[in-house]
Write a protein that binds this DNA or RNA. Structure first.
Lengths: 338, 338
DNA sequence: GATATATCTTGAAACGTTTCAACACAATCG
DNA sequence: CGATTGTGTTGAAACGTTTCAAGATATATC
């Protein structure tokens, strides 16, 4: 038999409600009974059944997080930051990995709703995600992370500005002949980075030749294709990768081919993953403030949870966080005469 | 008001129990009522409250996973594999990140127990973890992952054998002068790798000079200290790092100092993280079968959950999975004359 | 000493399910 | 035709909590 609040009450010689009051400080309990209850709890190794409590209280103190993948450094970091923030506030995180499967994404949201989580945080995979539509039919608040949706609560990076930062840095160093490794331009975040980058370059009067732009997946492997740019005439003096992993791939290729970074070619990434800091030279990059994003998302969600009524008729807010440029060793002014 | 099985029943003009039977196929329902119920469910957008169901059924179909950290590639991968395996079986994963905090680890296990998870998977941080002791007081089965405990159920890599594989490979190539980058030797897993490595080398009649052994943390930064080994006379022709991240650190340093891998120095890691496959040359490594470990752990745990009674008196089994050597480009025979 | 007040304790109802035992009805059997 | 079987349906109890309203006791007030 399970040990319940009733068994504790019986052993302590009081009513279950008294035990409950003792546990929750919801009513004063005389020192004598307090001690009895304490002893009974210890003797039976009683632990309150949070599921039952949730049923009664209509709040589970749990939050679901849906991410496309956990091995991508950025997502893994976000998940960690969010777990930490939630834990601090007494919330348990239910992690769902969608594996970029739209069907699965939706079922996971439905499941979380069925489990009566108090709220949901979601990095949806792409614009077509059915889960986004589906999420409107559930009763708990939902905050979209990293990838905003018009008309919904969200917390994300200002990707356009990030692209501008990158452009400004390279242009400021004197680069005029610049390449671009563009990972998955159909993801809005990436598109915005590119747009910001191009817009800013245009402001400097710099035009990126279309054959200096490579498209591919956001994987290390794609970065290896930088070798194609090295054959161009004139060779670009700097390259912006829309993603650190891609930048690392490029970096590896350059080293292998005997090019020196940054003397022969400057390289600039986006994300600020841990590895980049340890390359030699370390990678200059536009840092996604993953800590700030995760914490802000949790803060916003908990607000929605706690002041539910008040927020019902407010138009959802979209929090945009500015990335910052981390200047490290992989970028420098172009060599003389170029 | 929440939409419950009762509201559905009322709208469909039947008893709540009938709706339940319809949902769970626990009793035949006539086609007519079935349709009515279906319609009512759709009309009200009803979704069964899994919390309430759990309370009644005494099973939550959820499992807790405790890991020290989610950004370490190996842990992140394990978490992902486990989530996938659990999801396939209809279980929800509750993720707890202990941040290597022994206190927190314990509280997390207690919390999971309170939430009535059906079982717990745990990568504890170190031998002193109080959580290990604590876990004996809870009622649900627990399987230790990656780091076994005598007398408890566990699934882990055969680290000793992994060390042997590494040694055999290097010795077989002809290396006689071998260095060792040893990350956190007080973690048993690491100690076993080293032991297997040394044992096998001894069998080949090779002794590792004590000043060829460096100790440090399992971080990329530690790998940078390989430069200390490069000054030794004679210089080692190969280095084994007990961890891929450390190996990558070493690899970066070698490249930066102008040493060629593997011509000047062979380098061998442990874990098989994704990044290693993309170095140029790619990293030879002893692969931790993270997929197999995760899946096996889930399989074992679900067995314990489902056949609980039967297992009660069995002595816990400790599953050991053999790692495999992935020979890639970073190792080769030593240069002539050395 | 009666009444009011404060402190402590309690039984019962509720949260949203599932399931047992019982019932109603129709079809089948001998 | 009475008994049996099978198919659908149901009310009530249970899962382990919390909380409301009310009861019990002790203390203070007039």
């Amino acid at each position: 038999m399970e040990v319940t609040i009733r068994s504790v009450a019986k052993l302590a010689g009081v009513a279950p409600s008294t035990v409950s009051h003792y546990l929750n400080h919801s009513a004063p309990v005389s020192p004598g009974t307090a001690q009895n209850v304490e002893r009974a709890i210890a003797a039976l190794n009683y632990r309150v059944n949070l599921g039952a409590r949730s049923l009664r209280l209509r709040t589970t103190h749990s939050v679901g997080l849906v991410i496309p993948n956990n091995t991508t450094p950025f997502f893994g970091e976000i998940a960690q930051v969010i777990e930490n923030a939630l834990w601090d506030k007494g919330y348990q995180m239910l992690l769902c990995i969608s594996e970029r499967d739209l069907e699965r994404e939706t079922v996971q949201v439905a499941n979380l709703a069925g489990r009566q989580v108090d709220g949901i945080l979601m990095i949806y995979h792409c614009e077509q995600s059915k889960a986004v539509q589906f999420s409107k039919g559930i009763s708990m608040p939902i905050v979209f992370v990293d990838r905003p949706i018009p008309g919904e609560y969200s917390v994300a990076t200002d990707n356009f500005y990030g692209g501008q930062l990158a452009a400004r840095h390279l242009a400021g160093l004197g680069h005029r002949c610049i390449g671009l490794l563009c990972g998955e331009a159909d993801i809005r975040n990436v598109a915005e980075r590119v747009e910001g980058f191009m817009t800013e370059l245009r402001r400097w009067g710099i035009k990126v030749r279309s054959d200096y732009v490579l498209d591919g997946y956001q994987e290390l492997q794609f970065g290896l294709r930088i070798s194609e740019l090295l054959k161009k005439e004139p060779r670009p003096t700097a390259v912006f990768a829309t993603n650190d992993i891609v930048a690392v791939g490029a970096w590896l290729t350059l080293l292998e081919k005997g090019f020196r970074v940054p003397q022969d070619l400057s390289i600039l990434g986006f994300d600020d993953i841990e590895l980049g800091r340890f390359l030699i030279p370390p990678l200059t990059t536009v840092g996604q403030p993953s800590r700030e994003i995760g914490e802000k998302a949790v803060e916003l969600l908990l607000q929605l949870i706690n002041e539910k009524e008040r927020f019902v008729n407010k138009t959802p807010t979209s929090v945009i966080i500015s990335p910052t440029l981390h200047v490290r060793g992989s970028t420098a002014a172009p060599a003389e005469g170029r």
